[in-house]
Design a protein around this nucleic acid. Sequence first.
RNA 1: GGAGAGAUGGCCGAGUCGGCUGAAGGCGCUCGCCUGCUAAGCGAGUGUGGGGUGUAAAGCUCCACCGAGGGUUCGAAUCCCUCUCUCUCCGCCA
Length: 427
Amino acid sequence: MLDLKYVRDNLDQVAQMLKDRRMDMDLQQFAALDEQRRAILSQVESLKHERNKASEEISVLKRERRDASERIEQMRQVSQKIKDLDQDLSGIETRFQEILLRIPNVPHASVPVGADETANPVVRTWGEPPRFDFAPKPHWDVGEGLGILDFERAAKITGARFALYWGMGAALERALITFMLDTHTGHHGYTEVLPPFIVNSASMTGTGQLPKFEEDLFKLRGFDYYLVPTAEVPVTNIHRAEILEDQDLPRYYTAYTPCFRAEAGSHGKDTRGLIRQHQFNKVELVKFVKPETSYDELESLLTNAERILQELGLHYRVVNLCTGDLGFSAAKTYDIEVWLPGQNTYREISSCSNFEDFQARRANIRFRRTGGKKTEFVHTLNGSGLAVGRTLLAILENFQNADGTVTIPPVLRPYLGNQDTIAAVHR
RNA sequence: GGAGAGAUGGCCGAGUCGGCUGAAGGCGCUCGCCUGCUAAGCGAGUGUGGGGUGUAAAGCUCCACCGAGGGUUCGAAUCCCUCUCUCUCCGCCA
């Protein structure tokens, strides 16, 4: 959520921002409601002031055993008026908040203006694509050939866009989760947390999934509960409605969770393989920092995520998302895209964002500087470190051998009984 | 799932028959005084959000907030209803 005063005083800039993001919103209604809201507010507040004073008078009259019925009768009317105005106000307030909650974040100055992902500049590239003396297969062929990925049975158990992992497939997924968490806690200073995988609507609103993106979520029938679409939601909301102390910042958290996404509007896209699932595993990095450090913190968060790919030996590039591709809550986002030789393309494997105070304002996460009187909103950041399923498929595609086996990256071998290869097993 | 108890400021804790209670008292914290050091002592201060005023900060002023929402009333932390959460006992259970 943007600062109300900022929007009020910079309507033109906000309108331009919406244009840059290729969004269309009616800000006139916002301005009108804002004006109405303040007009009624000052009216109702002066009436309440009157009521408070009369209340004191009445109490004095009563104590002195004098007649207060005339004053009470007057106040009966004032009270009714207050009630009516309060009702008007809450109606306006609701509509006003609804609009404010649907205005996206303002992109940082370093974010290029552009229409879509084709306008995302490449920031850097790491490593080289592997060379093959045979035609590399897509991971679904590799995985099914090895008997470690089973999409048919997953469809039977649940439906489309779910996966069943067997044997070394399941073990590799688990090894990746542990390796990622160990790296972030052991080398990057993050504290591991294991949050609930189900959250309420207040948490979803805090990080920006609600109210705008309800159709992307799985909601539990009969509850105000949703399955988490990313660990960002429960982990960022750890500090919702809290005031942190200066020395509490920065805070770095890492969490493994499964992620559940309805993938509304993506029918026909990435229907094969592990790329786009309703359920996938992810290790997330979340930071709470002071405003003046948040862009440095974004760079280091990105570096932390990149290290996983570097240690695994996977070639990737980093892109800076342009205004048309930037997420709703983000001020700036870097995507890390891993090379997939089986599909001859780069695919997103991590998204690292600085939300500045956008989420903090929604979730009311503040801090107080030492000796300071005023509270300020923290800046929140998060990034995948990494998407586990996509990492697994990248390994299958990049380290496949001509005989159909897959070589296990050395850093993962200690987690897999020091095995160096995944060989085929009949299922 | 059944029965009961509770939710007040950073913490503990009081609020009688609804009426100067934003909220006693204590602890903590901040500043000042005192003091070989430490401790103790003395004095003052110590919530959040919003509106108005102010170039801004400060200040001044008004409104709201005693788990959340609604109701009764001239007036609610105090009465009523609904919900949420916490605790105790019983049952069930990974």
